[in-house]
């Protein structure tokens, strides 16, 4: 138990002193699993980093200001819309989305879903791993899903900034951007009209589109439970429904773009109150 020799070695008793090391004992202290704290004072270490970052960034901004000035267009006139009318770049993703969806969806419901979905992330992610470091392999689903959405947002922005010209038509960088493009001769159709063209009755075609739309969400809600049983169990019922519901909503935008470009479909579902 006692390691008298070691104690004596480290701290020999000195009769002239009124204090001494009594005993060294082997055992577990409450600090054993922690590495020694390697901390520094915020003043000056962190504060200087912040100052340097701020000053550098400000210098960069001032440098930009010397050759690029804030734009100012003609005075507002309610009668003429500039052509093309481009929002600032950070809203061009939204503007591009509006080309494919009705305003109530692209302008309100999808943005609100995006923000609410973002807010819900910490409550939906049950994976405890990967806190405090750049982790890729430990949480593949979270990383892939988030990055897919984030990338989609940036792709829409890039399309809006670099590929949209007069009349919001598609322009390649090597096209003449001062010439109007001829309006696409392809005509847009609704899904139910296409189905009618295949010989379905009007009511039957309507119902077919409803069933297809519901099927879309059912597939997203059912398939993961079959494919990834463990992960689904981990999520629990409520989280599972929210996660895959939001996922299905996110996948709506690439799907609609694909349907529009590949099959000239304007709406894939038409109800008396709203159209998808």
């Amino acid at each position: 138990m006692a390691e008298r020799d070691t104690t004596e070695n480290i701290f020999p008793r000195n009769p002239k002193k009124s204090y001494a090391l009594m005993e060294l004992v082997k055992g577990q202290g409450f600090q054993t699993r922690k590495q020694p704290e390697d901390t520094v004072f915020v003043w000056p270490h962190l504060l200087y980093i912040e100052l340097i970052a701020a000053v550098t960034f400000l210098a960069g901004l001032l440098w930009v200001c010397t050759f690029k000035h804030a734009p100012l267009e003609d005075m507002a006139s309610a009668d003429t819309t500039p052509n093309p009318m481009k929002a600032p770049w950070y809203f061009l993703g939204l503007q591009e989305l509006l080309v494919f969806f009705d305003p109530w969806l692209a302008g309100m419901v999808l943005p609100v879903l995006m923000i609410v979905g973002l807010m819900a992330i910490p409550y939906l992610d049950v994976n405890p791993k990967g806190v405090g470091y750049w982790a890729w392999r430990e949480r593949p689903f979270a990383i892939w899903t988030f990055n897919f959405g984030f990338l989609l947002w940036w792709i829409f922005i890039i399309i809006g900034v670099f590929f949209r010209g007069l009349d919001w038509a598609w322009y390649w960088p090597w096209d003449d951007w001062s010439q109007h493009k001829v309006a696409s001769s392809a005509t847009l159709n609704d899904m139910n009209v296409i189905l009618q063209g295949w010989g379905m009755g009007a009511a039957g075609a309507d119902w077919a589109t409803y069933v297809l739309t519901i099927l879309y969400f059912v597939v997203f809600l059912a398939l993961p439970a079959v494919l990834w049983r463990g992960f689904s169990k981990q999520l629990g019922a409520v989280r599972y429904i929210i996660v895959w519901g939001l996922f299905a909503a996110m996948m709506l935008s690439p799907l609609k773009v694909f349907l529009r470009l590949a099959f000239n479909i304007k709406y894939f579902m038409v109800t008396p109150w709203f159209k998808l």
Binding site: T81, P82, P84, Q95, L98, L166
Partner: peptide, 16 residues
């Protein structure tokens, strides 16, 4: 505000 294109016989909107 869309613009009128007499040659194409179409109104086209510059926003979307």
């Amino acid at each position: 505000t869309p613009n009128w294109f007499p040659d194409q016989e179409r109104f086209r909107c510059p926003c979307h």
